[in-house]
C-alpha cells in the first residue's frame, strides 16, 4: 500500500513539470524574457566584481582639456560622463538600484493588492464596497506627480522611493485578485467542497488562492517593469536617487547636458533601462499566454 501512496504523491508533480516544459517550448517569449532578466540581474549582482572602475570615481583622463568627456575607448568601454566617471561602471551599478526598487516595490504592490483584493472578494458586501472605493481612489491619483510630491517632501532615499511606488501602485492588482476570487467562488467545485463540509478558510487556501496565483504572477512580472520605469522617471525628474549614486533615470537626466557632443551616457543608460523593462514585459506576456490559453490562440 505504501508504494501506492508514494505514487499518488509523486505522480502529479511529474505530470505537471512535463506539461510545463512542453508549454515553455511553445512560448519562446517566456524563455527570452527570463533570459534577459537573468542576464541583467547577473550583471547587476556582479557589478562590484565586473565593473572596470568605481562608479563614482572621477578620472582626469576621462575628460579632454576642454572638459569634454572621452568617447568609448579601451579604458572607458562606453565612454565617460560629464564628470569624468566611467559610464559602463555606472550602468552596471545602476542596474542594482533599478532592479532593487522594481522588485521590492512590486512586492509591496503584491502584498497590499492581494490582501485587499482577497478581503474584498471573500467578504463581499460593505467590506467589498469600501475596499473597492479605496482602490478606485488610489487608481485615480495622478501617479507620477503624486509620487514626485511625496518623495520631494519625505526625502529621496531609496526606501522612500520604493515605499511610495509600492503604496501608490497596488490598485490594478487588488482589482484583478478580487475579480478572480468572485469568479472562482461561483465555480461548482467550490460548492462541492462546501457540501463536503470544507470551511471557508480551507476553500480560500486550497481552491481560491491557487486560482488567483496565475493572474497575480503575470501582473507582478509586468509591474516590475512598470515600477522600474516609474522609479527611473522620478530620478529623471531629479526627485529619485540622488547623484553621485548611479541610477539609469538619473544618468539620462545627467546625460542631457553633454548629449549633443557626448551622447554615450544617455544611450547607454536608456538602452539598459529599455532592455530590462522589455525583459519583464516579455516574460509577463509569455506567462499570460501560458496561463490563459484563450488569449494565446489570439496572439
Amino acid at each position: 500500500m505504501s508504494t501506492n501512496v508514494g505514487a499518488v504523491v509523486q505522480a502529479p508533480t511529474k505530470a505537471r513539470t512535463g506539461k510545463f516544459k512542453k508549454s515553455l517550448k511553445r512560448y519562446p517569449l517566456v524563455y527570452l524574457g527570463a533570459l534577459i532578466i537573468v542576464i541583467m540581474a547577473l550583471l547587476a549582482i556582479l557589478a562590484p566584481w565586473i565593473s572596470p572602475h568605481s562608479p563614482i570615481a572621477t578620472f582626469n583622463n576621462a575628460l579632454s582639456e576642454q572638459g569634454i568627456p572621452v568617447g568609448p575607448s579601451r579604458e572607458f568601454l562606453l565612454g565617460a560622463d560629464g564628470n569624468g566617471r566611467d559610464v559602463l561602471s555606472r550602468v552596471l551599478w545602476g542596474g542594482r538600484i533599478s532592479l532593487l526598487i522594481g522588485l521590492l516595490s512590486m512586492i509591496i504592490n503584491l502584498v497590499v493588492g492581494t490582501v485587499l483584493g482577497l478581503i474584498a472578494g471573500v467578504f463581499g458586501g460593505w467590506v467589498d464596497a469600501l475596499v473597492m472605493r479605496i482602490t478606485d481612489t488610489v487608481l485615480a491619483f495622478p501617479f507620477l506627480l503624486f509620487a514626485l510630491a511625496l518623495v520631494a517632501i519625505l526625502g529621496s532615499s531609496l526606501w522612500n522611493i520604493l515605499l511610495t511606488i509600492g503604496i501608490l501602485g497596488w490598485g490594478v492588482m487588488a482589482r484583478v485578485v478580487r475579480g478572480q476570487v468572485l469568479q472562482v467562488r461561483e465555480l461548482e467545485y467550490v460548492q462541492a467542497a462546501r457540501a463536503l463540509g470544507a470551511t471557508e478558510w480551507r476553500i480560500m487556501f486550497r481552491i481560491v488562492l491557487p486560482n488567483v496565483f496565475g493572474p497575480v504572477i503575470v501582473l507582478s512580472t509586468l509591474q516590475v517593469g512598470a515600477n522600474i520605469l516609474a522609479a527611473a522617471g522620478l530620478s529623471y525628474l531629479g526627485m529619485g536617487i540622488q547623484p553621485p549614486t548611479p541610477d539609469w533615470g538619473g544618468m539620462i537626466q545627467d546625460g542631457l547636458t553633454t548629449y549633443t557632443y557626448a551622447p554615450w551616457e544617455m544611450y547607454s543608460a536608456g538602452i539598459a533601462l529599455v532592455i530590462t523593462v522589455v525583459g519583464f514585459n516579455m516574460l509577463g506576456d509569455g506567462l499570460r499566454d501560458i496561463l490563459d490559453p484563450q488569449s494565446a490562440t489570439r496572439q
Binding site: 517593469g225 520605469l229 527611473a232 522617471g233 529623471y236 533615470g249 539620462i252 542631457l256 548629449y259 544617455m266 536608456g270 533601462l273 529599455v274 523593462v277 522589455v278 514585459n281 516579455m282 506576456d285
Partner: peptide, 13 residues
C-alpha cells in the same frame, strides 16, 4: 513590446 517598454522622456530626447 519594445514600444511599451520605452521611457517616454528618453524617446522624447
Amino acid at each position: 513590446l519594445i514600444g511599451i517598454s520605452l521611457p517616454v522622456y528618453w524617446l522624447g530626447l
